[in-house]
Nucleic acid binder design. Structure first.
Length: 583
RNA sequence: GAGCGCGUAGCUCAGCCGGUAGAGCAUUUGACUUUUAAUCAAAGGGUCCUGGGUUCGAGUCCCAGCGCGCUCACCA
């Protein structure tokens, strides 16, 4: 299944999947500079609890990183740092925290100086950092964490900070034209941290003394004058200069950013050049939109949270969503989940059959760092082939016949199909869905198909939250009511655990004497034994399941359980579903 | 105003390095289970936004235009 690095590299050089296109920019950079290491960066703002965009940025950056390693056959070391801007001043109290008043008393201070409202860490900043790391760790991302506070205070930025002070005018010449006159008059790239209050000050600078490495400013309240070194964590930088300084000080080679930051990247890049640095490679991905085409924002709470996605589908499907068309504005809301799941599965399914050229363009390759798991599929007719883990692995791409001769027809179960099944079965019980699947492939089981089992569990949750509320039930009229009551009674009289056939026969027998459902044109119908029309079954679906169509009803009841079915009938007749529908 | 993106079947979209327009859903028809879900088979349906250009050949590349959407221009 796998190829050695040197065998893979030629394919990688011809690959045009976007992570490779990005990685090629880095290869060119490395060839230009002769550097032996490449540094990737992703950054996190101070408001910073991890969210779906955080996942996307790290996942995408990781894909580029892996593509780069493939291109260079692992000869160039790579690192990814997750940089937290925890020295930024806290601008407002977040809504979603306890002890707001405790935090409010520290507005304006660096996050690492604000007490932790959750009482778990030394500071709010450290709390957020811990959350970020836990989040990234949960997905198994490989990264090194970096704290702005720590980096500033350790002196790691000092040399670059001093350089920026020396190039103060150049930086201002870049920044000022981008600002409105009003803001420009007071703008300074250095934000001194007030030696007494600890607040990150946004004040005009009275003096720039690069020989002594400090800036002079005045407290706007008291008028007191202070001189503050730009080094050692006594000054924070404004955002765009900060970004530039960090790139230069750390030697960042790659950082991607959303399209809303295009102008910022441009300005920061200019500043980086003014510091004799080379801005990183990178690209601008599109923002996600909500169902109405609006930008997703944490404050507005529109769109989809990562927790919500993961309630309905796997992390891999989310990674697929992030891989797919990063430059196009995509809507991110519940409806896209089933499609993302199914497309991911389709790519996973195709992977073993593909040649390497195609494999390197297959999202599954990028999502799984070059080693996608084998697809699961169940087989029709009698024996389901178990999961072909070994089988798929041992069959090389080029010669992979779709299936050995005589093997039953294989079928990948899609999320859409499971949702359909859940809808018609009206069930949140995974074992009911498994029951339906076993009718198709008797050998199938959760043990043999763990991923399918997981998907079924996701599907029933999705069904419960999104599909079931859309069901349209109708009320039974008098004839229908009597028929259903009769059916319920007849079901009760059946022996325990009836077969699907028995129930199906019962259904016909119950309907046969009812004039509305008689059909003399039916196959095998006779005057003394009328056939049963479709209307009977249609009524069952509409009244009991809220669907226009449904499963073979005898099979359904046999799987669903006679008692459950009788409860279903009772509830329907009691108008329970109607009441729910009008809510 | 600037930047980014989009415009292909009724709907949602795919179309990689130019080579006879595709899928899913929807619609219609058929197969199968005592007629009904899933599944399978088939059919209908397109001025690829418009106009130029390059080319033997353009949905695809280039230019211009039209329409739509988003982002930025205060802070990160």
């Amino acid at each position: 299944m796998s190829k050695t690095a040197s065998e893979l590299a030629p394919f990688a050089r011809n690959a045009n999947a976007w992570p490779f296109e990005e990685a090629k920019k880095l290869v060119a950079r490395v060839e230009r500079t002769g550097q032996k290491q490449v540094l990737f960066e992703t950054g996190y703002g101070p408001s910073g609890l991890p969210h779906i965009g955080t996942f996307g940025e790290v996942a995408r950056t990781t894909m580029v990183r892996h593509a780069f390693e493939t291109l260079t056959e692992g000869r160039i070391a790579t690192r990814l740092i997750a940089f937290s801007d925890d020295l930024d001043g806290l601008r407002k109290v977040p809504d979603n925290i306890p002890n707001k008043e405790l935090v409010a008393a520290h507005l304006g201070k660096p996050l690492t100086k604000v007490p932790d409202p959750f009482g778990e860490y030394n500071s709010f900043g450290e709390h957020n950092n811990a959350r970020l790391r836990a989040f990234l760790d949960a997905f198994g991302f490989q990264y090194e964490f970096a704290s702005a506070t720590h980096y500033y205070q350790s002196g790691r930025f000092d040399a670059t900070l001093l350089k920026m002070l020396a190039r103060y005018d150049a930086v201002q010449n870049i920044m000022l034209p981008s600002l409105r006159a009003e803001r420009a008059s007071s703008y300074a790239p250095f934000l001194p941290i007030h030696p007494r209050s600890g607040i990150v000050m946004q004040v005009p600078l009275e003096e720039i003394d690069s020989s002594r490495g400090l800036v002079a400013w005045r407290d706007p309240d008291t008028g007191e004058r202070f001189e503050t070194p730009v080094t050692g964590g006594h000054c924070k930088l404004q955002w765009k200069p900060d970004w530039a300084m960090r790139w230069c000080a750390l030697g960042v080679d790659y950082e991607m950013a959303g399209k809303d930051l295009i102008d910022s990247v441009k300005l920061s890049s200019e500043i980086a050049r003014a510091l004799d640095g080379t801005p990183p490679e990178g690209f601008n991905y599109e923002l996600f939109l909500d169902e109405n085409g609006q930008k997703i924002s944490k404050s507005r709470g529109n769109g989809l949270t990562i927790q919500e996605w993961l309630r309905y589908a796997s992390p891999e499907s989310l990674a697929f969503f992030m891989y797919w068309k990063p430059r196009e504005a995509k809507k991110l809301y519940f409806d896209v989940i089933p499609k993302a799941v199914d497309e991911y599965l389709a790519f996973l399914d195709a992977y073993p059959r593909q040649e390497w050229k195609l494999r390197l363009g297959n999202p599954a390759w990028h999502i799984h760092a070059g080693d996608p798991p084998p697809p699961e599929f169940i087989a029709h007719e009698g024996e389901a082939k178990g999961n072909p883990a070994g089988e798929a692995k041992s069959s090389p791409a080029g010669e992979a016949k779709s299936s050995p001769a005589g093997e039953a027809k294989r079928m990948a179960i899609s999320f859409a199909m499971l949702l359909n099944l859940a809808a018609v079965a009206n069930s949140e019980d995974p074992s009911v869905l498994w029951g339906f699947l076993r009718r198709y492939a008797p050998g199938a089981s959760p043990e043999k198909f763990p991923r399918l089992d997981r998907m079924i569990r996701y599907a029933v949750v999705y069904f419960r939250d999104f599909v079931r509320p859309k069901k349209v039930y109708r009320a039974a009229d008098e004839v229908e009511r009597q028929a259903l009551e009769k059916l319920s009674g007849a079901l009760a009289a059946l022996p325990a655990n009836p077969s699907a056939e028995e129930v199906q026969t019962l259904l016909y027998d119950v309907a046969r004497p009812i004039p509305r459902y008689q059909n003399f044109a039916a196959k095998g119908a006779a005057p003394e034994k009328p056939g049963v029309s479709n209307d009977w079954f249609s009524m069952l679906y509409q009244v009991l399941l809220g669907e226009a169509r449904g499963p073979r009803f005898g099979s359904f009841i046999a799987l669903y359980g006679v008692d459950n079915a009788r409860t279903l009938i009772a509830d329907a007749l009691a108008g329970k579903f109607l009441a729910d529908a009008t809510k």
